[in-house]
Every structure is written in structure tokens, then in C-alpha cells.
Amino acid sequence: MHLNYRHLYLFWLVAKEGGLSRAAEREGLAVQTVSEQVRALERSLGHQLLKPSGRGVVLTEAGRAACARAEEIFRIGQHIADEVRQAATEPVLRLAVGLTDGLSKLAVHALLAPVLGDARLRLLCHEGESAHLLGELALHRLDLVLAGHGAPATPGLGLGSERLLSSPIVWMGPPVWAEAAAGRPFPQCLDDLPLLLPTAHAALRLRLDAWFEQHGLRPHIVGEFEDSALLALFAERGLGVFPVSAAGAADLPRSHGLSSLGRCGDLHEEIHAIRARRGMHHPLVQRIVDAARTG
């Protein structure tokens, strides 16, 4: 069906004004012209939208549905001129970043920090499964993917990667659990505490499970989360203690009232920058990579 938006606009105007005459007067048109165009819209939709009521018209049930959607369309349309003018006069650097499930949001923020102060930045962040994000990257719908692993060895995708971060894991918790762990050596104290962990889809979770076994720990897991920021929130509310990369933990004590229980020197979170070779020269992506190299 081809929808004539001029006809839709006049119908919407009639509905708002409560009559054909008032809508015609507002637009400087003949009443017959407005009536004909509204009837043309009704024919294209296959339903009556207006019905006579006294000296005016009212919406039918079908008309109410059409009017609600038209209201949304024309409300959005009112912003087009402002947005076009802004885009034409203010330089914008668009940066579309994919974040694979399970990455520490705090560590990601630290990696993106070198570009966040750029007044030209228009940042778009997408979170999802690795395969989907890499497909979007290969199609150049994303400029960068941050993942817990390097690019797959798939020549057809044309992807390259490098490790930006390898940060030791720190265990954090609210005061109630930090006090409960006091007096016991780390990491054995974790046996007595409720643990909040990333779900099994996260690359870090596999390394955590191996680390528990290596140290003879029997973890008491009370929660598993796909979103690391949500995990930190539940920890802050007292549900348990959780692991986070040292790079992402720098602001936690100040912002969340959390304390460090201990650091795992033999367990790290890795974050890799994956880029399409055709898009290697994005200035903001290069700034992120250069800052990670020197940092």
C-alpha cells in the first residue's frame, strides 16, 4: 500500500480541529479539497476514519487508531528541521561500538575515556553476541567491536584485532561482606561469602571456574548476571561479592561504597579491539587504540 502523507496530514488536521471547515481554513484550502483528500486516504486504508456528528465530524474506531499513529509521525516530523540544521552546521564524529556480552562496563568506559571528552562525538553503543556484532562490523555498520577474545581466523570477514587490556581481577564487596572476610587469607575467604558472577557466556566466567578449581575453592554462587553494571548494583545493595578487572574498579569504592577483598595476580580480564581492515583509519578508534598501547 502506498500511503500519501499529505492525505494523512489533512486527516490528522481535521481530527485536531474537529471539522473540515476549520482544517480547510487553517491550510488555506477549499473544504471540498480537504474532504476529497480525506476520502482518498479512507479508500487507500479501506476503512472509514471520520463520521458526521452535529455540525462537525468525529473519529471512528479506525480513525482513532490512524490518528494516534499520525500524531506520532508528525510530532517526530517537527524535529526534522532542527536536526538537519544541527547536522549541517555542527561537525559530528560518529563512533559505533559493539560490546560483546559479559564485558565489564567499567573497563569498557575506561578504554573509551580518551574520546569521551571530544565535543564532536556521537557515540552509539550496541551490546550483543559476538557473532552478530562481528557480522555488523564486517558490513561496516560498526566501527569497532570490544570483545573478550581476538578476531576469529576467518579470512572472508576481513577483520583484525589487538589486545587493548589485560587487567588483574579484583574481588569487591559491600562493607558487610568485607568485614565478614576480615581475618581470613585471600582467596580462601571467598569460600565463606556469597558470590555474584558473570554468566557462562562471558569469557571471564570460564577462567573464573578454572581459578576456583585451581585454588580448591567451593564457590557459593547466589547470582549470575549478563550485565556487569547490574551485577555491581546488586553487590552494592548487599547481595554478595563479585570480580571486576582492576582497570574497571578504580572508581568503585567512591561511587558504589564497595571495598576490595583481594587481587588475583594469576587471573586477568582481557579486552580486544576488533576492526574491519577497511575501517582501520577512524580517528576516534585510532585514539582509543593508541591510548591503550601507551597506558
Results as ranks from 00 to 15, higher is better:
Lys16Ala: 13
Ala24Arg: 05
Glu25Asn: 14
Thr33Arg: 09
Thr33Tyr: 12
Thr33Trp: 08
Val34Ser: 04
Arg39Gln: 04
Ala40Ile: 03
His47Met: 00
Gly56Asp: 09
Thr60His: 04
Ala62Gly: 00
Phe74Tyr: 05
Phe74Thr: 01
Ile80Glu: 11
Glu83Ala: 13
Val92Cys: 09
Val92Gln: 12
Asp101Ile: 13
Ala107Gly: 12
His109Phe: 04
Leu111Glu: 03
Gly117Cys: 07
Gly117His: 04
Cys125Glu: 14
His126Met: 10
Gly128Asn: 10
Glu129His: 08
Ala131Phe: 12
Glu136Met: 15
His140Ser: 14
Leu142Met: 09
Ala147Gly: 09
Ala151Pro: 08
Thr154Gln: 13
Gly156Glu: 12
Arg163Cys: 15
Pro175Val: 04
Ala178Ile: 03
Glu179Ser: 13
Phe186Gln: 11
Phe186Asn: 09
Leu190Glu: 03
Ala203Met: 05
Leu204Thr: 07
Arg205Ser: 10
Asp209Gly: 05
Ala210Thr: 07
Phe212Glu: 01
His215Gly: 04
Leu217Ala: 09
Arg218Val: 12
His220Asn: 12
Leu230Asn: 07
Phe234Leu: 10
Glu236Trp: 06
Leu239Val: 09
Ala247Leu: 14
Ala249Ile: 04
Ala250Cys: 12
Arg278Met: 09
His282Trp: 08
Pro283Lys: 06
Pro283Glu: 07
Gln286Ala: 15
Arg287Ala: 15
Val289Asp: 01
Val289Ser: 03
Arg293Pro: 06
Gly295Met: 05
Gly295Asn: 06
